[in-house]
Amino acid sequence: MKIRRKIELAVISDVHLGTYGCHAKHLLTYLNSIEPKKLILNGDIIDVWQFSKRYFPKSHLKVIKKIMDMAADGVEIIYITGNHDEMLRKFANSTIGNISIVNKAVLELDGKRAWFFHGDVFDVSIQNARFLAKLGGYGYDLLTLINRGVNWFLEKRGKERYSLSKKVKNGVKGAVKFINDYEKVIAELAIENGYDYVVCGHIHQPKMEYFENKNGKTLYLNSGDWVENFTALEYQFKRWKMYNYDSDKLSAFYVDEDFENMEIKDLIAAITIVDKHEKKK
């Protein structure tokens, strides 16, 4: 019998289902290891920008099925829209069973206010040059595809994984400045509005850091991604923790055997279960 960790809240973002860079099996291992009261999907879960009918493997369908099953089992799912799944913004403030779709969320956690949003609204490249941003997204997807081949070779030789995109980001001063500015602007806005925690994604940089100015302080949190960092945020016992798949994974938890032969009909069945749950309420 598998014992899942009971936690109050889990946050994942930037899964990018439908792209070659997505590590869906890693995410399934993580989701199978936890039993949260709430699961926040903080944007870019399904990548509509790079979506292709030619590439949506079973492991990606299994992630969607797993989330549907969690909702049917009573887990509150809050889907916060991002830029890669922006088509869902037209459905903001709607609910299906235990799943709600929103553009942002504010929760009270043990007397403290937490502000959740994806973060693309603070990205000037997204707001002012959408075409270039999408083009850059395709380039990033190609880089992660190449990176998967490199890491496959490294793992076969027993060597440590290597992130090409992270190396590029860290080696370009402009990218480093953008990330620092992004974090600072968001933290200062959270302080200005009296939020104790501000939780976002978008830039694929997992982080937990206190920011402070003359008006107060806030804890900035970024859930990272499931393309290169494989990270999530967890809240339990009044504390935040950064989960990292590479260092925290539990060998007992892998993709459930029940998922092995899953087809699209099973995904439809899962959605039907959630819908029936809604009608009973």
Rank of each mutant, 00 (worst) to 15 (best):
S251N: 14
A129H: 12
K177C: 05
K169R: 12
D85L: 10
I77S: 15
R130W: 14
K281E: 00
I3S: 13
N98R: 09
R130C: 01
L250E: 13
R4S: 08
I271D: 07
D256I: 08
A114K: 04
Y182V: 03
V121D: 00
N222G: 05
S163V: 08
D275E: 08
I273M: 05
Q205T: 13
Y20A: 11
I80Y: 09
D120C: 08
I78Q: 07
Y210P: 00
A105R: 09
M242E: 13
G149F: 13
I99L: 10
Y195R: 09
L145I: 06
N128E: 14
V274Y: 05
H118G: 02
L267W: 04
N180E: 13
K279S: 02
G201H: 01
G119V: 01
R89P: 03
K265P: 03
A72T: 12
V15H: 00
E278I: 04
N147R: 01
Y220S: 07
I45Q: 01
S163N: 15
G224A: 12
A269F: 08
W49N: 03
F131Y: 08
G216V: 09
F56P: 03
D248N: 14
D225S: 08
D266T: 10
S223Y: 03
G43N: 05
C200K: 01
C200R: 02
K2Y: 11
V185N: 14
I12M: 06
D47C: 00
N213A: 06
A105Q: 12
R89G: 08
V102D: 02
E76H: 13
Q50P: 02
K53R: 15
I268G: 03
H277C: 01
E212A: 14
K65L: 07
E192L: 12
K25G: 09
W49D: 07
K159S: 07
S125N: 05
I77T: 12
Y55F: 14
Y182E: 04
